[in-house]
Design a protein around this nucleic acid. Structure first.
Length: 271
DNA sequence: ATGGTTGGGGGCCAA
């Protein structure tokens, strides 16, 4: 919007819950916030049906898309060139849950959609929860080999801190905030010394959410949110962090996603 | 303790 912010590299992560259902929302978001790189999750469309032209018309001519029918799917759309586009399978499934790409300044950008894990937080009776824990374990060992400088974004479906949920006590047995998940999140952070870019700007004592259930009426007043979306940066990128915001206004727009976009500005002179 | 909403797809399942 301002000339000042145009000096920054603006990266956004947003679980849109179907890209095709959200084009008007994304259009408005692009116009208002002028992102440079959009990392979307849950695009819910197969790769060859992704609306590439629609994004090209809005200046996002560089695409890294990993989609599938029905579920999941991730896409990174950029105004700046993307190189080394790569995706891989996780937990020996061909779910579309990850896409990697490299920005011109050499930063590797990893866009993830971690399994939600179902309702029952018991891996013995809930295979979805078992899959989620296995996926996180695989991410932890993979992350230990990630080279700097990298950025890991996405819907990780884990709210790691007590202040990342509306009630720590009431959510301890609710999938997304159980000890086996939050412990794995800690291990993931330690595996690369990732810097939590959101908490870099908001003290850990303060509530910070990025998702509010569709099922709650008056989501803003009841504010039963969770921080499921994350932006992690390599230690060498810490000094480039310039600003962060959860754009919760978009949760109030017509036909919203249940996730709000998370916006992070980097100072490219410090990357 | 329960139910509440949304999207994809083609009839309930996943979130």
């Amino acid at each position: 919007m301002t000339k000042l912010s145009s000096r920054h590299l603006r990266i956004v992560t947003w679980n849109v819950n179907s890209v095709r259902a959200r084009l008007e929302l994304i259009d408005r978001f692009i116009a208002e916030k002028q992102p440079d790189v959009l990392c979307l999750q849950e695009i819910k469309v197969q790769t060859d049906m992704f609306p590439r032209k629609w994004f090209e018309e809005r200046g996002f001519s560089h695409h890294a898309v990993h989609g599938q029918r029905n579920h999941h799917g991730v896409a990174t759309l950029s105004r700046l060139p993307l190189a080394d586009i790569d995706s891989q399978n996780w937990c020996d499934k061909d779910d579309a849950r990850h896409i990697a790409s490299r920005l011109a300044n050499g930063i590797m950008l990893h866009n993830f959609y971690v399994p939600a894990g179902g309702d029952e937080p018991d891996r013995e009776i809930n295979p979805r929860f078992a899959h989620k824990l296995d996926f996180l374990d695989e991410m932890i060992s993979w992350s230990g080999k990630v080279k700097e400088p990298s950025i890991l974004v996405g819907d990780l479906n884990v709210a790691p801190l007590e202040t990342d949920v509306w009630s720590h006590k009431q959510l301890l047995k609710v999938v997304s905030h159980t000890p086996p998940e939050t412990e794995r999140m800690e291990q993931l952070m330690a595996s690369h010394d990732w810097v939590d870019a959101m908490r870099h700007f908001v003290p850990r004592e303060e509530p910070l959410y990025s998702w509010w259930s569709y099922r709650a009426k008056n989501w803003r007043t009841s504010n039963r949110g969770r921080r499921l979306d994350h932006v992690l940066v390599s230690p060498t990128l810490k000094d480039s962090l310039a600003a962060m915001s959860v754009f919760d206004e978009a949760r109030d727009w017509e036909r919203p996603s249940d996730h709000a976009p998370v916006i992070v500005d980097l100072d490219p002179t410090r990357t």
